[in-house]
Nucleic acid binder design. Structure first.
Lengths: 319, 319
DNA sequence: GCGATGCATAGAATATACTCTATAGTAGAC
DNA sequence: GTCTACTATAGAGTATATTCTATGCATCGC
C-alpha cells in the first residue's frame, strides 16, 4: 500500500460511503456528483490494493480490509478533529504555555495576578523566571521568554511596553530610628547613614543611584545584600537604612517605618514588555487580556496604573 | 484549519523535520532537496494557520501547536502503519474471517480440519453454516458464504469445485438383525424392511433415492427423521434400516452393523465449492491451502481424495 | 568581516487530484 | 420484461501538489 497518496479528503469520502452504504447517498451528503465519489473510491482502492467494498443486498458493505480501513479512517479523522479542538483552545488562550521573566521585586506582586488567572485557565502552563534587572536583560536579549516585567524597559526598538502597576520606592528605617517621627526629611540628612543596597545590576539600586545623581548626592558607607528580603530584615534589625519597593514591605510592618523623605517615593512603574520580533503565544495574550480586565480585583487600587489595553491594541495592530 | 488538503506525505515530511530539527537534514533523509521540504512546511503551515516551528539555539523546534501536530501526525502515521501490517496479515491469510456452508453430514468431518487450522491461524474467524442440501443450495444461490461443501455440486457455471474426501453411504442395521451375518445381500431383499429416511432436501436421501431409481427399486414403509444422529440411534434401537454416510457412524459401533449390500457403498465425494463471481477472502484461500497440505494428517487416509491443489490452481488462474 | 551552513522564496515543469458532464452497464421492483 | 435507481467508466478541464534549480538572506563561528 502506498500511504503517500492518501488524502484526508479521500478518507472522509470513504467514511461517508461506508456509513451510508451507498455511493450516490454519500455524494449527496458531500455535495458531490456520484461519479466523483466513484472515482475517489477507485483511487483509494488503487492505493490500498485490496477490495474494500462489496455489494450485498443492494447495499455497499465493506470487506474485511474495508472494515479495518474504515476503523483506521475514523480514528485518524477523529484524531485531527481533536487537533482542531486543541487549536481552537490554543487560539482562545485556554491552553498552551508561556513564560514570564520578572525582576526580583515584581515577584511580590505578580502572583496576585497569576493566581486568579490559573484558576480560570488551569490548562495553561506558566513558567516564571526571576532575577535581577541585569539577568532579565540578558534573557530579554536572547528572547528567552514571552513576556517580561521591567520597571524601566530596555530599548523599545524591538519591543512594546505597557504599564500596569505603580512601583514606589520608599526609604525605610527601623521603627526606633531617631528621625522616624519627623514630618519631613531631606535626603541630604541621611546620606551619612549606612545604607543597605542591592547588588549592582539590581533595578532598585539603579533607580536609587540615578536619583541620587540627579540630586547631586552620594552615599556614605553602604552594605550590599542580594535580596530584598535580607535588606528588609536587616533594616528592621538596625543595620541601616534602605530604599526598597513598597511592595516588598509586608502589609503590617511594626518594626519598620517609611521615612517621609522629600521627593520620595521615587515613582516608577512595572510594565509588561512584549518583543515585536517574537511570536506571542495565544496563552500569553490571554494572560494580558486577563490582567487588563482583572487588575483592579487583584492588587490594591492605589497601585493600579493600567495601560494594558493600549499595549494590547498596539500589539494587535502589528499582527 | 482545513483538513481537506492534508496529505499523509505532508505529515511524513513534517515528522522528519521535527525529529531532525532541521529542514536540510530532513531533506537529506527523505531524498528531497531542501527547498522542497521548506515548501511542504509552508503548505502545512497554511493548512493549519498557526506557527508550527520556531528556531531556537540554531535548531528548529516545534511551537506549542507544532508539538501537538507532531503528536497527532505520529499517531496517525502509526495507525496506518498498523493498517499496513493488518493488510499484510490479511493477504497472508493470517487474519480476517470467512464462512463455510456445510451439508449436515459433513459436520462430522470438517472440524477435523478446522481444529488444526484454528490452532495455526488463531486470528481467523470462521463461521460455519450447517443445514441440509436444499438450505445450502439457497445460501449458495444468494452467495451468502465464501466456501461451500457439497457432495454433488450445483451447476459449476459460477463455481469451481475440488474433491477432498470420500463420502461412502452404507446400509446400516441393528446389530441383531437377521441378515447381519450374511456375506452378500441384494438391496431387493431389503426393500420390504422399514427404512429410516432423512427429510426431503437432504443430500443423503437424494443420493439414496437416485440409486434406487437407477436400480429399478422402490422402498416399502419409511419413517422420516431430520437428523443423522436420530436415524443412527433409531436403527440401533431396532426401528428399521437406514442409508447413512459412513462418517456419521462412531468409530466403535457395537450396536450397529454395516450390511454388505451389493453395489454398496454408494460412492460420493465431498467437495469444496468456490463461487467464481465472489471474491475469496485471503483467509478462506489460506484455509484451502491448509486443507490441501494437512488433509492426510487430519482424517483417516482411506477417506482422503485430495483434489484441492487442482482447485487452487484453477482459482489462481482466474485471479 | 568572511566564509560556511541553513532557511526561504521565486520561477517553472510535470504529475496528480478533483470535479464535472455524458453515457453505459447492472441489479432490484413491480 | 420493463422501469428505475445505482454504480462504473470515459473524457476533459481546472486546480493543486510535487519537485526541481537558482538565488537571496540570516546566523554562527572564527
Amino acid at each position: 500500500m502506498n500511504v503517500r497518496h492518501l488524502t484526508f479528503r479521500l478518507l472522509q469520502v470513504y467514511v461517508a460511503v461506508v456509513r451510508s452504504g451507498s455511493v450516490s447517498e454519500a455524494a449527496r451528503q458531500l455535495h458531490l456528483t456520484q461519479p466523483t465519489v466513484s472515482q475517489q473510491l477507485k483511487r483509494l482502492h488503487e492505493a490500498v490494493e485490496e477490495p474494500l467494498l462489496q455489494t450485498s443486498r443492494g447495499r455497499l458493505s465493506p470487506t474485511e480490509a474495508g472494515r479495518e480501513l474504515y476503523r483506521a479512517s475514523r480514528e485518524v479523522l477523529g484524531r485531527f478533529d481533536d487537533f482542531e479542538d486543541y487549536l481552537t483552545a490554543l487560539r482562545g488562550g485556554e491552553r498552551g504555555r508561556f513564560s514570564i521573566a520578572l525582576v526580583n521585586t515584581a515577584q511580590y506582586v505578580l502572583p496576585r495576578l497569576l493566581g486568579p488567572y490559573s484558576q480560570v485557565f488551569p490548562d495553561v502552563e506558566v513558567t516564571l523566571h526571576i532575577g535581577n534587572r541585569r539577568q532579565m536583560l540578558t534573557r530579554f536579549e536572547r528572547q528567552d521568554d514571552d513576556l517580561y516585567v521591567f520597571s524601566h524597559p530596555p530599548s523599545l526598538a524591538h519591543a512594546l511596553a505597557g504599564r500596569f502597576l505603580r512601583n514606589p520606592l520608599v526609604v525605610i528605617a527601623p521603627h526606633e530610628h531617631p528621625l522616624a517621627s519627623r514630618e519631613r526629611i531631606a535626603m541630604s540628612e541621611l546620606v551619612g547613614e549606612r545604607f543597605l543596597l542591592r547588588e549592582p545590576g539590581s533595578a532598585t539600586r539603579m533607580m536609587f543611584e540615578s536619583w541620587l545623581q540627579e540630586h547631586g548626592l552620594s552615599l556614605g558607607p553602604t552594605l550590599q545584600m542580594a535580596s530584598n528580603e535580607a535588606i528588609r530584615v536587616g533594616v528592621a534589625a538596625g543595620m541601616g537604612l534602605a530604599v526598597l519597593s513598597e511592595h516588598v514591605l509586608p502589609p503590617e510592618h511594626s518594626d519598620l517605618v517609611i521615612l517621609p523623605v522629600t521627593d520620595f517615593p521615587i515613582e516608577s512603574h512595572w510594565q509588561f514588555i512584549i518583543r515585536r520580533d517574537r511570536r506571542l503565544p495565544h496563552a500569553a495574550h490571554g494572560f494580558l487580556r486577563f490582567a487588563s480586565g482583572h487588575l483592579d480585583e487583584c492588587v490594591p487600587p492605589r497601585f493600579v496604573a493600567n495601560e494594558l489595553e493600549r499595549l494590547l491594541t498596539a500589539w494587535e495592530l502589528i499582527h
